[in-house]
Design a protein around this nucleic acid. Structure first.
Length: 634
RNA sequence: GCCGAAGUGGCGGAAUGGCAGACGCGCUAGGUUCAGAACCUAGUGGUGGCAACAUCGUGGGGGUUCGACUCCCCCCUUCGGCACCA
């Protein structure tokens, strides 16, 4: 939000329009910067005797069209155009410059420069020795332009601002804009910033852009009845050959739809984000041959419940995907405004990458450790040079990928699945570790071996289905653990895909099972089966095989998800934590639901607590049922 | 600069405001073994102590609370995305 202001050019019947978010600094304008591509630049230079040098400079500036990222880093440069504009507000005469930091794509392509209150203008003014005029003073401080080391971009009180002196700058923003409007010098304006999509790609893989170039008629759209433009299939891909479509004559040659003369077809294709922004609609009604999608079907199934993607999808694809949806919604073609209800960003898989000045990127095998001056350093086996390491997203460039085939051969796909799901929560980046893979593999082997060694006894018979009252202590314990695991596993996975904690619960259950193999056979059988069922989505091959060995005829994937039995979760004892001033001092197992009064007596009567409380005055006892007792003492 | 995420052992990471470090890796000791691998058992945050135990400890500083990794305020660092956007 800001204002657009017109600066009359001296000696010409022209005005330079600028956009600013800081109309309050209008009195501090000391020059105006134009983008090199600004339409007025050429006309201002033409009449100038020194014009040639300036044109040269501007040409160079235009040539060095860098990517947006690089442009942010280069130094500010510019040239004075030997022309002036008048500040409408105070009649001051200020120079017109062309500057490389002014962007034609944004606003009007012209900047009113206020070096005292804008860092970019400040840097530019310092370089070319242009005046700096302070018009906003911070409270309790006085800025001196001659000693300022950076622009003051914050709030303050207006100074040297004519009738606005003494105003808070936030108020002055409004007041000055109103003043401009009254005198027809400018007006308030909201400026939107558009992201440059760069829709076209110079490659084969993408939808054709249905445009034909005609010498006479210009750019002509392909008529609707000729759509879609199909890509040729007999293209040849050549290394470094660029877009094969541009080398395929039969594709390029076309007749102009308007004048029927020879014409040329567009060979760029659309970014694949275009297709993936609407094909979810098509998927739902792929048998429609009269229209793109069926409204009823689409409205019934969509929006999508969950969008899972990496961060690059969230920032790139999602923008287009949402844009298409919003447009279709505004056109009344679909009944929803957002394509997905929930976004989940999964992390990336990273691994250590190695780099040396001499060899550039190195694989893990090409690097060795050496002790040098008591410190361990990395050395390249190739050249012996020093190697630095970083954790980076797996990429071919950085040579830090792992080959899945190799790991499948060594450990099997189940190991890889288990490792990837158990190592880190899915919304975080994962750092690949060979040891972690081994750990996952060992767990599977433990699981399998336990079955091999002990499973036979439980393959037949029924799982336990009593209410627990007939179970001995050990069986009761295992039974409860089994159902606690079902509960935790299910909620971890359903909530936020916390496979890592879910799996750790099964690992714990495996330990419990090994310690309670002599428990009730029905309970042990149930525990075995539960583990197989819970792990089936994680390690499908192993689970299916064990499931079959357990005498189940149907696939494990047709079985019901295990259900938690509330009666199994019940406990008759609970461990209570004893604290003094919030610090742990002792623990004791007490009957479930022991009332607070009894608990209080118990904690104060406890030997350990007594000795720890010696010489202290008990102020209060806080008891939380089935949890803790905290003695507040001084 | 803006937006987002994250800071907890040697490492990956756990903890509805209530036992910090589950589970896994690594490490140590013991068992098994001709030996190694694998496997099993136990231990494993720092400091002090033979020990029981004490004490400190979740990026830093404040605050709320009987009690804070967790809630509030301020700050620092790292990573990712966007960026001379006037």
């Amino acid at each position: 939000m800001g204002a657009e202001i017109e600066f009359p050019v001296e000696g010409m019947d022209e005005k330079i329009r600028v956009f600013t978010t800081r109309p309050d600094t209008l009195f501090g304008v000391t020059f105006v910067s134009l983008a090199a591509e600004h339409p007025l630049v050429e006309r201002l230079v033409r009449a100038d005797p020194k014009g040639y040098d300036i044109v040269q400079f501007i040409q160079n500036m235009k040539k060095s069209r860098l990517s947006e990222k690089d442009r942010a880093l280069i130094e500010k440069e510019g040239v004075f155009l030997n022309h002036y504009v008048t500040n409408p507000l105070n009649g001051e005469r200020v120079q017109i410059w062309v500057a490389n930091y002014a962007l034609m794509e944004y606003g009007t392509g012209a900047v009113m420069a206020v070096p005292a209150h804008d860092q970019r203008d400040f840097e530019f003014a310092k370089k070319y020795d242009l005046p700096i005029k302070v018009v906003i003073q911070p409270k309790g401080e006085t800025l001196d332009p001659s000693i300022m080391s950076e622009a003051y971009e914050y709030d303050g009180i207006q100074v040297s601002s004519g009738l606005f002196d003494g105003m808070e700058n936030q108020c002055a923003k409004k007041a000055i804009t109103e003043h401009l409007e009254k005198n027809a010098w400018g007006s308030g304006k909201i400026q939107y910033r558009l992201r440059d999509w760069l829709l076209s790609r110079q490659r084969y893989w993408g939808a054709a852009i249905p445009i034909i170039y005609c010498e006479k008629c210009g750019e002509v759209p392909v008529p609707e009845e000729d759509l879609p433009v199909r890509l040729p299939e007999n293209v040849t891909f050549v290394k470094e050959g660029g877009n094969p479509l541009a080398r395929t004559d039969e594709f390029i040659h076309a007749k102009c739809p308007r004048c029927h003369q020879d014409a040329r077809r567009e060979t760029d294709t659309m970014d694949t984000f275009v297709d993936s922004s609407w094909y979810f609609l098509r998927f739902l009604s792929n048998r429609e041959d009269k229209k793109v999608f069926d409204q009823k079907t689409v409205n019934a199934w969509l929006p999508i419940d969950l969008y899972i993607g990496g961060i690059e999808h969230a920032t790139m694809h999602l923008i287009y995907f949402r844009f298409f949806t919003k447009v279709l919604h505004d056109l009344g073609l679909i009944g929803f405004d957002e394509p997905a209800k929930r976004l989940f960003c999964q992390g990336m898989v990273c691994k250590t990458a190695y780099y040396s000045e001499e060899d550039k990127w190195l694989t893990q095998d090409e690097v060795t450790k050496k002790v040098k001056d008591g410190k361990t350093v990395l050395i390249s086996k190739k050249s012996g040079s020093c190697v630095s390491s970083e954790i980076a997203k797996m990429s071919k460039t950085k040579l830090n990928t792992v080959n899945p085939d190799e790991i499948f051969d060594r450990f099997g796909a189940d190991t890889v699945r288990l490792y990837m799901l158990s190592d880190a929560p899915p919304d975080r980046d994962q750092i690949w570790s060979e040891e972690g893979v081994m750990g996952a593999h060992r767990f599977i082997q433990r699981f399998w071996r336990l079955f091999e060694e002990q499973g036979a006894r439980f393959q037949r018979g029924e799982s336990y289905d009593g209410d627990g009252s007939d179970l001995d202590k050990s069986s009761r314990h295992l039974w409860r653990k089994t159902h606690e695991t079902i509960q935790k596993f299910t909620s971890d996975v359903e909530g936020n895909f916390q496979f890592n904690t879910a799996i750790s619960k099964v690992m714990e259950l495996l330990k419990e099972l090994r310690n309670h193999l002599e428990a009730n056979a029905g309970v042990v059988r149930e525990t075995f089966q539960t583990m197989i069922l819970l792990l089936a989505p994680i390690i499908p091959h192993v689970s299916e095989e064990l499931w079959q060995k357990f005498g189940n005829k149907e696939s494990v994937f047709k079985a019901h998800w295990p259900e938690v039995r509330e009666c199994a979760l019940e406990k008759d004892e609970v461990e209570i934590v004893f604290q003094i001033n919030g610090k742990l001092k002792n623990k004791k197992t007490v009957p479930m639901d022991l009332d607070v009064k009894a608990l209080e007596q118990l904690v104060l009567g406890d030997e350990k607590m007594k000795s720890a409380l010696e010489g202290k005055q008990v102020l209060k006892v806080i008891c939380v049922k089935n949890k803790l007792a905290n003695v507040v003492a001084k």
